[in-house]
Design a protein around this nucleic acid. Structure first.
Lengths: 124, 124
DNA sequence: ACATTAGTTTGATAATTCCAGAGATATGAA
DNA sequence: TTCATATCTCTGGAATTATCAAACTAATGT
């Protein structure tokens, strides 16, 4: 992930309403949630929600598609993973164990490790 | 880490100048760097740098202490680790493996990853 | 065709953030 | 003390971001 993308993602999440929206979407997994449902749960006026969803989409953190009258939004785990990778590599001085000791061991287990499309570099 | 702290940290990092400052400090480890040195390396006017350092300090991402005439700033790895933990737990739906697969395996193993001055590739 | 439902866009206003200049403060040297 | 160095704070204006009412667009049902 490039710095500019990381900044966009960080900026998108650095706002209470958007962080709430994103967390809600993450909780609902790949099936996502209709915009109206998000608005109802978070008590947000439709235009305000629409504004924030656009920011999240611009940052690549959510995807959307229409289903009948509703527009379904879902969290984009790939971007979130890329952001975590960027922060770990660029903001932990190449010593991830200093900054990421909290990760559950599951993240390290054998199977799960991957499938990332791009090779990743460890910063010097 | 509370949501408000996470938002402050995200907001602090969501700005090019500050992300540059933070990355520079991370690269220089616990010894830190004097404000003047940061200003020189990043070509920043002193007031601008001071403004951003204050934001980073408010977010808990850097610490500072005076040493003679200089004020030394250093990255606070603890806060960075807390932020990564918050994001992993709250933005990955309790499925960290979905979002954190990019971590070099070494982060989980016994040490060693580090200290390489050369860029290194981790096979996916 | 018309009404209904679901979202978006527009636009005005309020709040916040960014950043450079001028001046203030703290430390060390002569 | 006086001077030079290093950094900070205060200030204010420009730019950006957040909010939400009103108007608009798209899909569906009658």
């Amino acid at each position: 992930m490039k710095q500019i993308s990381a900044i966009r993602a960080l900026g998108a999440l650095a706002q209470e309403t958007r962080l709430d929206i994103f967390r809600l979407l993450v909780q609902h997994g790949p099936e996502g949630l209709a915009a109206g449902e998000i608005a109802a749960r978070l008590r947000l006026p439709a235009p305000t929600l629409s504004f924030h969803l656009n920011q999240l989409r611009f940052a690549g953190l959510v995807t959307s598609h229409r289903r009948s009258r509703s527009i379904i939004y879902a969290a984009n785990y790939q971007t979130m993973g890329d952001l975590l990778g960027y922060l770990t590599q660029n903001c932990c001085g190449g010593r991830p164990e200093l900054c990421a000791p909290v990760l559950p061991a599951a993240a390290c287990g054998p199977g799960q490790l991957l499938a990332s499309k791009h090779k990743r570099r460890v910063s010097p």
